[in-house]
Design a protein around this nucleic acid. Sequence first.
DNA 1: ATGATGTCGATGCAATTGCATTCACCTTGG
DNA 2: CCAAGGTGAATGCAATTGCATCGACATCAT
Lengths: 148, 148
Amino acid sequence: MTVPRPETIAAWTALQTASRVLLERVEGALKAAGLPPLAWYDALLEIERAGADGIRPFALKERLLLPQYGMSRLLDRIAAAGLIEKRNCAEDGRGLLVRITPAGRRARRSMWPIYGAELARQFETVFSGEELECLARLLWKAKSGVSG
Amino acid sequence: MTVPRPETIAAWTALQTASRVLLERVEGALKAAGLPPLAWYDALLEIERAGADGIRPFALKERLLLPQYGMSRLLDRIAAAGLIEKRNCAEDGRGLLVRITPAGRRARRSMWPIYGAELARQFETVFSGEELECLARLLWKAKSGVSG
DNA sequence: ATGATGTCGATGCAATTGCATTCACCTTGG
DNA sequence: CCAAGGTGAATGCAATTGCATCGACATCAT
């Protein structure tokens, strides 16, 4: 069992710090605009992409990296706000199909200008296109990493 | 404000995903070993570094990027476990000084082999030293970014 | 068919987090 | 000194998260 090198610690610390700081800025921008949290955006986007057929919660939870109960409750809240609807699944009696509603579409669209602008602000005033690609490539590798 | 370029979205997505996946692996390793969560390690490390004088919660919260109430409660829990002790601050009647206890030192030390090994595993089997440095440099810049 | 096993989703309960407020004390300007 | 305003820390209460479990249905092997 070896101990990490200093560069590893630096990369890990920078990763956690940057991720949290930027996330906070993005969430802050949404909240300041009176909009729902980021998780709602991600969920709405995936659900919207799934189209009229809807999507199953178990599929959604894998894309959004949420635990099963987390997904279940997130969908509860979004549905309670009228942004999605849950329907019984014909092919599998255990399951649901989740679809976006018109209000859900509007909500997602109203979030994007704020969200997107904040992303552009955080990344594009700081990095060149090459740097962005390099960053994305390295981070992707980190995620896929050992087990990938 | 404009909408972000595709590279920006890729970098942002990769950042959030990588950060969460790796964090989960590290927390998982600690939990699997029956050890306290990562936040305890970070806090214990800073408190231990502060030495016999102790450190003030308001200073700690800035290093660990926690909100004031989050820090207050984290310290409550760590103190309840006997790993730190809180003392009144002589120079400022409002404040505390937090010091590590022998048990706290032992706890931190017992976490490091697991934590460090997991870091080494996640980063050093995937990246070269140069990649690690590049990653750290870019991430640091991202954090400092717009406002820094 | 049927019983064993596996998967999907919900939920009770405990722990944690977020928000707003409070209390105590410090600092500063008269 | 005193009032006004600022800062350090705690906390009541609501919302969210984590954990374990459950109920319903599907699947698979016999």
